[in-house]
Structure formats: C-alpha cells, structure tokens
C-alpha cells in the first residue's frame, strides 16, 4: 500500500504503521488488564480463580503459542532465503499452533462454564472472559491472516521481495504472544504465588 515517492525514513510505511498500531493496542490490553487487576479479589460469589484455573493445562497451551512465535521467525527466515517450501511449511505451522492454542481456549471456556464461571456470574467471570476473549480474537485474526498469506502464496508465489508483508504479520503475531505472557502471569500464575 505504498506509492513510489520519496520517503524520509528507510522504514516501509506498513511496518511503521504496524509498530504504531501495536503501541495503541498496548493501551487496549493495558486497560483490560488494568480493569482485571482493579477488580481482582472483589467477586462477591464464586467460582473464584483458584477454584477453576488449571495451571498445567494452560502452561501447555502457552508453550504451544510461544513455539508458534518461534515458527514465525523460521518462516520469515525461509522467505528471506527464497525457500518457498519451508516458508509455506512454517507459515502453516504458525497458523496451526495458533489454532491449537485457540482449541485449548475453547475447551477452557467451556470447562469453566461447566464449573459455573460465566460472563454474568461474578466480576472474575466478567473480567476474565472479556480479557482472554479479546486476546483470543486477536489470535483468531492472526490465524486468518497467516492462512490468507499461505493461500495467496499459491496464487501468486511469494519471494524475498515480499518479506515486509510477512514481517508485519510476524510483528503482530509476536505482540499477541507477548500479551499472552503478561495475561498468563497476571491472571493465572499470580493466583498461586
């Protein structure tokens, strides 16, 4: 989405745009996490966090998400080397691992609802589902984005000249990962500290 005119920086427009978007997105998540922390421990009825949160399960899904970031690095590296096969393989891998993470989240949500934790039940439910749900939407968008890149690469082969488009998707993906690390710490680990 760039015209060929003079640029005063070396940075591609869309890459700068993504950094600025991520700066802004930090405030979105910051506000949601802030709300979660402000309301932490204020639920009047259960279920309370320690009764439902399952650290081993979420540790596995967190690990999967972190590994997907690793695959993202490999995919970008492969594209820069014009290694089309590995670029497609790793890009698929990122989307696949992202989907596994989403699967864990769907299971977790369903399981929590079974345990009586709902959006409307108590403040923990309200803040937990909205925070992790917003993160889940981000992951979903990332998965769709990466799959679109994958499909597009079969329509019109991607080469190292297109690396910035993958790099931008990668920036987004890594950011969503980092946000999850904060959420995992603040929402899950702190409860058992």
């Amino acid at each position: 989405m760039e015209s060929g005119h003079y640029r005063s920086t070396k940075l591609p427009d869309i890459k700068l745009m993504m950094w600025i978007f991520l700066a802004s997105d930090t405030m979105f998540f910051g506000t949601l996490i802030g709300t979660y922390l402000v309301y932490k421990g204020r639920s009047l009825v259960g279920p309370y966090p320690v009764e439902v949160l399952d650290i081993p399960l979420t540790t596995v899904s967190t690990f999967v998400l972190l590994m997907s970031s690793f695959l993202m690095v490999l995919a970008l590296h492969a594209l820069r080397q014009d290694d089309t096969f590995r670029f497609r393989l790793w890009t698929f891998g990122v989307a696949f691992f992202g989907s596994i993470f989403l699967g864990f989240q769907v299971y977790e949500f369903a399981h929590f609802v079974d345990l009586g934790l709902t959006l409307q039940g108590n403040l923990f439910g309200t803040t937990f589902f909205v925070l992790t749900g917003t993160h889940g939407v981000h992951v979903t968008i990332g998965v769709i984005w990466l799959l679109s890149i994958l499909v597009h690469s079969f329509v019109k082969p991607w080469t190292s000249k297109d690396e910035v488009y993958l790099e931008v998707a990668g920036l987004y993906w890594h950011f969503v990962d980092v946000v999850w690390i904060v959420i995992f710490t603040v929402v899950y680990l702190v409860e058992f500290a």
Partner: peptide, 13 residues
Amino acid sequence: FGTLFYVPQAGAM
C-alpha cells in the same frame, strides 16, 4: 450481555 463491569451490587466500582 449483562456483564458486571459497572454493577456495584456485584462488587464493581
């Protein structure tokens, strides 16, 4: 959706 972000009866502020 009936969440409780601003419902004082549920402990919200």
